[in-house]
């Protein structure tokens, strides 16, 4: 599993997977895909890194506590943005976010930034689930506290 061939091949294809994932996330509102699909692609690249380079190196690179912070902040930003939009629309302030031309990258209001946030959450959650199956508990991961 951890021969140098695999390591070198992974070194090449890992960025490609991540770029594809980012593409799926960012173009989620104009083509098939979106936050969940792209996030799972990025998450699978993180899992691949962990499988190939071993858990110690992955733990050093993806520190549990920072990832958790990232997830929480993304979720909070997502909730605040979406909730604020609903609240403001109910109170009568609408139409302050330009919708743009359908089909363009910068269109669809807030959908793209929200997709990016979902992508972050989903990718890290997938990585966490894989880690959980390996370690038993997330607290056992290095750098938990």
């Amino acid at each position: 599993m951890k021969t140098s061939i695999v390591k070198n091949v992974v070194k090449v294809i890992l960025p490609l997977i991540q770029i594809f994932g980012a593409y799926v996330i960012i173009f989620g509102h104009v083509s098939p895909g979106g936050g969940f699909a792209g996030g799972s692609i990025v998450g699978s690249s993180l899992i691949l890194y962990r499988l190939i380079y071993g858990s110690e190196r992955a733990d050093r690179k993806f520190i549990y506590f920072y990832l958790l912070k990232l997830v929480s902040i993304s979720l909070v930003v997502y909730g605040t943005l979406k909730g604020l939009i609903f609240i403001l629309e109910h109170l009568g302030f609408n139409g302050f976010i330009p919708i743009g031309v359908p089909g363009n990258l910068l269109s669809g209001g807030l959908i793209m930034p929200l997709n990016v946030l979902i992508g972050i959450v989903v990718s890290i959650t997938f990585y966490f689930i894989a880690t959980l199956f390996e370690e038993g508990e997330l607290e056992n991961v290095n750098g938990a506290e």
């Binding site: 997830v71 929480s72 979720l75 909070v76 909730g79 605040t80 909730g83």
Partner: peptide
């Protein structure tokens, strides 16, 4: 919204 944001999402921080 409050329950989700302050009760659940913010708590890990």
């Amino acid at each position: 919204l409050l329950l989700l944001i302050f009760g659940a999402f913010l708590t890990p921080l």
